[in-house]
């Protein structure tokens, strides 16, 4: 090992790792992600039939999808969907629900304040921070540019 420096070893070790099954992973992500979106579209179409307006339909659809994602996480199915679908299960809003529900469940033994509630956003927290933060910046920039005209 004396004839190898850190950089050389890291490169060498990287080559020894089996490559992911790219094609299979991409195919499954496509199918699982697409299917969840189709499920969302079915909900949308049903809600439109109830006579809701565009805005309410979008909000209600995300609430229903979050419920489904939470429920499937609770009964221990969403982690299996995630294992197969990868990003196809993580990126839809059901995956966002999964990232909130799974740590909440996991930390029940540590109590309902420091366990469930404190850990709930351990994965999804950054998403809200960057999402909400950037949306405020977008709003302010919009204000500046429209006022400037």
């Amino acid at each position: 090992m004396d004839n190898m420096n850190n950089k050389e070893y890291q490169k060498y070790a990287e080559r020894k790792i089996p490559k992911p099954t790219y094609f299979k992973n991409i195919l499954y992500a496509f199918v699982v992600g697409g299917a969840i979106c189709v499920f969302g579209q079915i909900i949308r179409n049903m809600l439109f039939k109830f006579g809701l307006d565009e805005n309410s339909v979008t909000i209600a659809t995300s609430i229903i999808l979050v419920f489904v994602g939470s429920f499937l996480t609770g009964i221990g199915i969403y982690d299996k969907i995630g294992k197969i679908g990868g990003a196809g299960a993580a990126i839809p809003i059901t995956g966002f629900a999964n990232s909130i529900v799974s740590p909440a469940m996991e930390y029940k033994r540590e109590g309902f304040i420091f366990g469930v509630a404190a850990r709930m956003f351990s994965i999804a927290g950054p998403v809200l921070v960057y999402g909400v933060g950037s949306s405020v910046i977008v709003g302010i920039l919009y204000l500046i540019f429209t006022k400037g005209r």
Binding site: I17, P18, K19, P20, N25, T73, G74, G76, Y78, D79, K80, I81, G82, K83, G85, G86, A89, A90, G95, N98, S99, V101, S102, P103, M105, E106, Y107, I123
Partner: peptide, 17 residues
């Protein structure tokens, strides 16, 4: 798993390594 990685019910893929 809960100390070093993700919650059990979190849907993530494990790399081959």
């Amino acid at each position: 798993e809960r100390q070093f990685r993700f919650p059990l019910e979190y849907g993530s893929q494990r790399p081959f390594s």
